[in-house]
Amino acid sequence: MIQLQHVSRSFGRADNPVRALDDVSLDVAAGEIFGVVGQSGAGKSTLIRTVNMLERPDSGSVHVAGRTLTDLSVSELRAARRSIGMIFQHFNLLSSRTVRGNVELGLEIAGVDSKERSRRSSEILDLVGLSDKSGSYPSQLSGGQKQRVGIARALASKPDVLLSDEATSALDPETTRSILELVKTINAELGLTVLLITHEMDVVKTICSSAALLEQGRIVETGRLVDLISRPGSRLARDLFPLGPVAPRSGGTVIDITFSGGTADRPVISQLARTHGLDVSILGAVIETIGGSQAGRTRLELPGSPEANAAAIADLRSRDLLVEVVE
């Protein structure tokens, strides 16, 4: 649905450019919720803005819903943007318009007549749960309500794709959850493809089916969440399930076991204790539900001799578990 191919974008003077995006390629499948994570300054904002060409790439191509946006003329691009909704961190609602007026903005721009506009805006305000606020002004709304209006505005022209630029970063945790829930509902009910950028791992964990890690304008890791978790040495997996630093201990071996898919519900630890006679202690654990299946990591300390521990690790690995020895 969304494809970026070798996209690069630099800012600043020609003799000392800052590379915001450096040969980025990305493929978001239809119906997916795809999250791009990275620190501030990694190029996330530039990345999401190239998808609807608010930011024109210096090189590379952008394809959305079968159209090559980088090849379109200005007026063709305007038309194409109507099928790409976008929501923003600071909502970007017009303070001079009511909730309904804001939702209808895109429809007015598209030249939809007023009867159809009000029918469509009523329908969408109902979907986002703001029917009773249609006559209010943005200044009278809470942050969560403002973002719902933002979502309604983006959805009014029935887009194929929704771009979310840190849409929950200005919201408190509870409101964030309700907005993510709404995005999830929209994704499921309208079959909308969602590309979001965020610096919050929780957002990715809560709604994304795939993710990419952006660092200094480059994509360093990408994949489906369920696959990332079982990928040895995955930085995204470590960021998604942080176990914290290892306290220095004498003797024994500290290992991280990653569970995903079918391995998650097996009684690994008690089996370990029984078959190897090891008194395993648990140093930390995270278990989450991702994409409908359980996944997580457990940090264990094996108290035995190096030989006994190695045998236990080999046994775990033979059972399709991902085991990493923590130095």
């Binding site: 305007r78 970007n92 609602l93 017009l94």
Partner: peptide, 28 residues
């Protein structure tokens, strides 16, 4: 706020739309 113009752009606004629906009403 330049974010408002960006939002209008993301909805496929022409330059005239930006002036007549965003800049002037918001600055009125």
């Amino acid at each position: 706020d330049s974010g408002l113009i960006e939002a209008a752009d993301s909805l496929g606004a022409t330059r005239w739309h930006v002036v007549s629906k965003v800049q002037v009403p918001e600055a009125l």
